[in-house]
Design a protein around this nucleic acid. Structure first.
Length: 533
RNA sequence: GCGGGUGUAGCUCAAUGGUAGAGCAUCGGCUUCCCAAGCCGACUACGAGGGUUCGAUUCCCUUCACCCGCUCCA
């Protein structure tokens, strides 16, 4: 399937529009049209119903270690800036970066180390980002000055190892991996979080961030939920909401947008059982996508390699989909299921933890105090059976609503053949969306606009509208009307014909098989409702 | 962020330094008893800004967006 065809259909039928299109568009932002908004709402509602509303806390679901509770939450997009310092996003997301024009590599300004070296009358700041800095710098300096190891004494070091930040003139700098000097751009600030300034006066003191993930809203409300709901561990808190990231390269339709919507659960459990819960959520979340129509052949559950994991995490897996815009054999992330240990709760309690420490300890600043202070609130959980206190571990299934919607659109797009009125085969474009996700569940047509058929059809339409999304159309050839609904992904079309007027039956036409069968008018609404829910 | 390409109607495309065309879609009729191309009619476009020119959709510059490759993707 060519992506342009899907993009074109999305615009033509009103699934997706480029944001601010009449002003030329805005990179990284997208608008959902009348059909798209229904589809995305259905995705989110399917998720919420399956995770929260219909969850039965009395019964252990298949594969779950025990019964558990699920509650929801809806937190603000803008939160206290300290949250992002303790979560680690602040340090990771706002950096001075330099680009190398020669190698096209991008580096964190503060991570490039180097030494001033002089030889043959030239003075160059030789840099590296490698682990064994001194050896690497020496090796690169010799190479730059065309010196053999035995002539190393011709090389004079004019400084100890220092940060590139101390160097004023970048034209005399040998960039890591570069062959020539002076290839680095001036340092530029990269803010991966979008900033805003609550309050009428723009002042640095007021600087806040649009959340880059919804999860932190859950962590900082974890105690409120415990105190207000009587939930007991193990339990999950679910949230759906917008998040914002300054993606460096927004691309691939809505796949990498700067404004996007997440569907996240933080599942809190005892540390001893966390591994089992992680496996439960990982497998359950994978199944959710196949249940809603993504083909197993295009989906994969990819466990992260141990070296991809934070050491405090015992597992992270991605649910990935083979999007048609990716190269053959490559997959794009739909959802990450992460074992986060107690990193987040402890960071919000004690102060930002150093993710590289083991066991985890609070990261200290130059003054020996915590780099970012936590809330100081006790977030431990008291097991009322044993009387023991502990900090729960969190399992985080974090799903992208827009990415899921895009995957469902990609999966649904098909071109097949259907006969026209002369029996000649024609290409048919059809969106084979799962009935639960389809924006319109059924369309109702009078076969022709006369003989009392419209009146009957309208009555059926009205009866449907009270129960589910339906669409009425009486214009033009009926084949054309069927094809229009095919592109909208409507699973069923109900047609009133001449026979209806004599025996009170209508035809129901199936979108995918094109089969038709007759149903009594009195039964048709219920029959379709059963098939689409 | 870098390099290359593209930007004309809702969609897919055409042509042109001087009035911009088509197919499909849409809308209004007619026709039509089951899968888009039967008939008549109607609507709609040169991404934005600036420059050159008597005159720019066309040439030049800038910008925005999209596509491809590289980079990035916590």
């Amino acid at each position: 399937m060519e992506m342009e065809k899907l993009v074109s259909l999305c615009k033509r039928r009103g699934f997706l529009f480029q944001s601010s299109e009449i002003y030329g568009g805005l990179n990284g932002f997208w608008d959902y049209g009348p059909l798209g908004v229904e589809l995305k709402r259905n995705v989110k509602e399917a998720w919420w119903r399956d995770m929260v509303t219909t969850h039965d806390e009395l019964t252990a679901p298949i594969g779950a270690p025990s019964p558990f509770e699920m509650v929801g939450l809806d937190t603000a997009i803008i939160m206290h800036p300290q949250i992002w310092k303790c979560s680690g996003h602040y340090d990771l997301f706002s950096d001075m970066m330099v680009d190398c024009r020669e190698t096209k590599h991008r580096y964190r300004y503060d991570q490039i180390l180097g030494r001033w070296a002089e030889a043959k009358g030239r003075r160059v700041f030789v840099t590296t980002v490698a682990e064994d800095e001194l050896a690497e710098i020496t090796r690169r300096a010799l190479k730059l000055f065309h010196l053999r190891s035995k002539n190393a004494d011709q090389l004079q070091w004019q400084s100890d190892l220092t940060s590139l930040e101390k160097v004023d003139d970048l034209s005399q700098v040998l960039a890591p991996a570069a062959k020539e000097i002076g290839t680095l751009t001036e340092p530029r600030e990269f803010n991966l979080m979008l900033e805003t300034y609550p309050g009428p006066v723009k002042d640095e003191k007021n600087r806040a961030f649009l959340r880059p993930e919804t999860a932190q809203g859950i962590f900082v409300n974890y105690k409120n939920v415990l105190d207000s709901t009587r939930v007991k561990i193990p339990f999950g808190i679910a949230q759906i909401g917008k998040s914002f990231r300054n993606e460096i390269t927004p691309r691939n339709f809505t796949f990498r947008s700067r404004e996007f919507e997440q569907m996240e659960v933080e599942f809190f459990c005892h540390p001893d059982t966390s591994r089992q819960w992680y496996e439960y959520w990982r497998d359950r979340r994978m199944k959710w996508y196949t249940d809603l129509g993504l083909s197993s052949a295009r989906l994969q559950l990819r466990d992260h390699d141990p070296d991809e994991l934070s050491h405090y995490s015992t597992g992270t897996a991605d649910v990935e989909y083979a999007f048609p815009f990716l190269p053959e054999g490559e997959f794009g992330e739909l959802e990450g299921i992460a074992h986060r240990g107690d990193f987040d709760l402890r960071s919000h309690m004690e102060g930002k933890l150093d993710p590289n420490s083991s066991p985890l300890t609070v990261e200290l600043g130059d003054d020996g105090k915590p780099k970012y202070r936590g809330s100081g609130k006790d977030l431990t959980y008291r097991d009322e059976q044993t009387g023991r206190r502990f900090l729960p571990h969190a399992i985080e299934p974090s799903s992208g609503a827009d990415r899921a919607t895009l995957a469902f659109l990609c999966e649904a797009y098909r071109e097949d053949s259907a006969p026209d009125e002369k029996g000649k085969m024609q290409t048919r474009t059809v969106m084979r969306l799962h009935p639960r996700l389809a924006p319109i569940k059924a369309a109702v047509f009078p076969l022709v606009k006369k003989d009392g058929m419209p009146e009957v059809a309208r009555d059926i339409y009205r009866a449907m509208k009270g129960r589910f999304a339906a669409f009425y159309d009486e214009k033009g050839a009926v084949g054309r009307r069927y094809r229009r609904q095919d592109e909208a992904g409507t699973p069923f079309c109900v047609t009133v014909d001449g026979q209806t007027l004599t025996d009170q039956t209508v035809t129901v036409r199936d979108r995918d098989s094109l089969e038709q069968w007759r149903v009594k008018i009195d039964d048709v609404v219920e029959e379709i409702e059963k098939k689409v829910s």
